[in-house]
Nucleic acid binder design. Structure first.
Lengths: 348, 348
DNA sequence: GCGTGTTAAGAAAACGTTAACCATATTCTC
DNA sequence: GAGAATATGGTTAACGTTTTCTTAACACGC
């Protein structure tokens, strides 16, 4: 039977003093007891904890953190959690933070600097203990510095910010894309395009660099037209299939920005009547869970996103614990995972 | 040049009284001015705001919320944000909350009641203003009631909790699955299996019910063996392909729990040498962005997840604003989107 | 010049916790 | 048994806001 519900009526709040009064001790004792301090006698502590549980006491973190200036909150901001690449990073951050009792607040910045700034501001207002960021395109070092100056330690993941003096954890993109490109060259491909993504991020520049280096090392040409940037999504890969097929000199293989683009591209090629993995070789990047079950299974580069998330969370927790952490980059070394989406070239 | 960084040195904190002292007014005046109260004269207000901006004042929400008992935080808990279905809901919740200046805290419960309870506890400790939940399997109404009793208004999405007296927003699952099933029956299919997912959630029971009703309405048999439950992921759908193909009486079509399962199943069928959409018809559920670019494009049921998220966020904001909100369910009416993964049956 | 009204700003008491310092009782040392 | 050490718990002042209640100043009409 449907009813109505509005603002919740706040019953008389139970606080430390409620317990203190009931048990005839001071609030200080209750506070210490609940935090398992050795400053209160065992039986007193147990009595207090039992009573607290019995009457449903709820710890007020706001009040505590106002006093201690530690909030137990960590902010995480990434481009877009709907992107499985970030979702995987987030998941490992989550499990690491959970273990340490920190709560995390999440935001997407969609590469909008203003959105990112708004979020940093929120973190400062809430007195967050720290932040893990995959910074928006063109984030100035000053934005990071401002956060740090206001007491918010920052750790970066996946992307770097020039001149920002904080730890960075990310994959070695140039090397990783090199692996994929070399693999294709090794199979006999000579005309290889690079599909999707943007060259505006540090990641983007690195990936493009890795591709060019590998091509030139093999003495191959790299016409500018073979760099087809685009959204880093399946949709993006799907839609770019047409332009790819229209390229003159007909490349026989595509190094894709990431797995999403690769899967989208493969679907687009299939829609056009081609068989990816036979007619056209395709590589991805990230080795998402779904790379293995794509059709055909995707040759891709494992990018260590789980590792990146874990290390970043650990580094932040270390900083919070007062330890000194090196501010330079830590590069995870990617690995090539060969599957069925790449094969010897076929002239078409 | 790599250096070290540790706990951030907290420069002398700027607070209301810093501004008040500098300008020779009281903290009360500063507080009112910054919140655009009409109780302070225009020129005083401007003077205060300008100075605050100039010296980089940061509003301390913890202190404020200790006083006002409103935190500006909303909790959101879902099964798993890596699931695009929830990610889409989240995105619309995010945009709605953003507009109202609320910050949101996110957690996955992975259908673990304990994890969900821990999160609710965190929300209570932080003094969250409200919560939007897609409850874990077997969440007792008491868990919801406990939250509400402690001043945390709750709104449910996607799944319901029996006897919980709060608003619920979700798709009409029985009706939606009926649409998909009817569509297959209309194409001439007689042997239709239901693949993936679980019957432990309200959603699951509803979907199974919708499938059975449609089958029986058409006078078709529904052997228990044709219900193949499994994980609600691509991986799950992929792995179930074998069992599906091994079913006796060889069903010619599969109604899948969701798009992920459907896409996984199609890939699994393709891997086995079949052509989904021709040899076997497959329907999905949710109409994720990627349904359109799947290979073949997936016939699926639009489930209004954006709408669900938006309505839920609005309802919560209404409750926070003191309005009364109806506690009964609001069912979004799903729509069938026909694409290439379904066709007339072919004997195999 | 006196009451009345209006407008602007100040004083001070919360909000619920923690931590630095005290106070008391108990035990220990010689 | 004096004095110190120890164990336990109490007092109280923060933490940075908001809000209620006052007060001050000024204008107005009689």
């Amino acid at each position: 039977m449907p009813g109505l519900c509005g603002r919740v009526p706040l019953a008389q709040k139970i606080k430390l003093s409620t317990i203190a009064d009931a048990l005839g001790v001071s609030t200080a004792t209750v506070s210490l007891a609940l935090r398992d301090s050795s400053l209160v006698a065992d039986h007193t502590r147990e009595r207090i904890k039992a009573h607290a549980r019995a009457i449903g006491y709820i710890y007020n973190r706001r009040a505590a953190s106002l006093r201690t200036s530690r909030s137990g909150i960590v902010g995480v901001v990434v481009h877009d959690i709907m992107n499985p690449f970030y979702a995987e990073i987030l998941r490992s951050i989550e499990s690491e933070l959970d273990r340490s009792g920190q709560t995390f607040i999440l935001s997407n910045h969609y590469d909008q600097l203003e959105k990112q700034r708004g979020f940093i501001d929120t973190l400062l207002q809430l007195g967050a203990d720290g932040a893990i960021m995959s910074p928006a395109i063109d984030t100035p070092a000053d934005d990071i510095k401002m956060a740090e100056d206001n007491g918010l330690p920052v750790v970066l993941v996946a992307r770097m910010v020039q001149d920002a003096d904080v730890p960075v954890f990310r994959g070695d993109d140039a090397y990783g894309i090199g692996l994929a490109t070399d693999h294709l060259i090794g199979l006999g491909h000579r005309r290889i395009a690079m599909i999707g993504g943007t060259d505006e991020t540090s990641t983007g520049r690195e990936r493009y660099r890795g591709y060019v280096i590998a091509m030139e090392r093999a003495g191959l040409e790299v016409p500018a037209a073979w760099r087809l940037p685009g959204p880093r999504t399946k949709q993006g890969g799907f839609e770019i299939a047409g332009s790819f097929l229209a390229l003159k000199d007909k490349p026989t293989a595509a190094v894709c920005w990431n797995d999403l683009v690769a899967i989208g591209l493969m679907n687009g090629l299939a829609r056009a009547g081609l068989t990816p993995g036979r007619d056209i070789s395709v590589t991805g990047y990230d080795d998402l869970e779904e790379a293995m079950i794509a059709m055909p299974a995707l040759t891709t580069v494992w990018n260590g996103q789980r590792e990146v998330g874990r290390l970043a969370a650990r580094a932040l927790l270390d900083r919070l614990g007062g330890e000194e952490v090196e501010t330079h980059q830590e590069l995870i070394r990617p690995e090539l995972h060969v599957r069925q989406s790449t094969a010897k070239p076929v002239e078409r």
